[in-house]
């Protein structure tokens, strides 16, 4: 079982920002750090951390922290 805390840490690593600034309502392009360049870095980090492969069509759906939890679930990673 993985935790929200871990997930937030993955975000913080990908965007190179403090863990505290990762909030559940964070959205793509809602902060300067989450843009088209870092989005793919985030995907890489998620894939590496959870050892999964995220299909391209799912990447388009990853518009917010909540959406990403759904996508992870779809790919077999349940976040508590």
């Amino acid at each position: 079982m993985s935790t929200t805390q871990e997930l937030h840490q993955v975000f913080a690593n990908a965007f190179e920002i403090p863990l505290e600034s990762i909030t559940p309502d964070l959205e793509y392009q809602g902060i300067v750090e989450w843009d088209s360049m870092s989005h793919l870095l985030l995907v890489d980090e998620l894939e590496r951390f959870y050892n999964i492969s995220i299909p391209m069509e799912d990447i388009l759906e990853m518009g917010s922290v909540d959406k990403i939890k759904e996508i992870l679930k779809k790919n077999g990673v349940e976040i508590q």
Partner: peptide, 8 residues
Amino acid sequence: NLGLHASS
């Protein structure tokens, strides 16, 4: 200042 991402 410039909106540059750390990864670049």
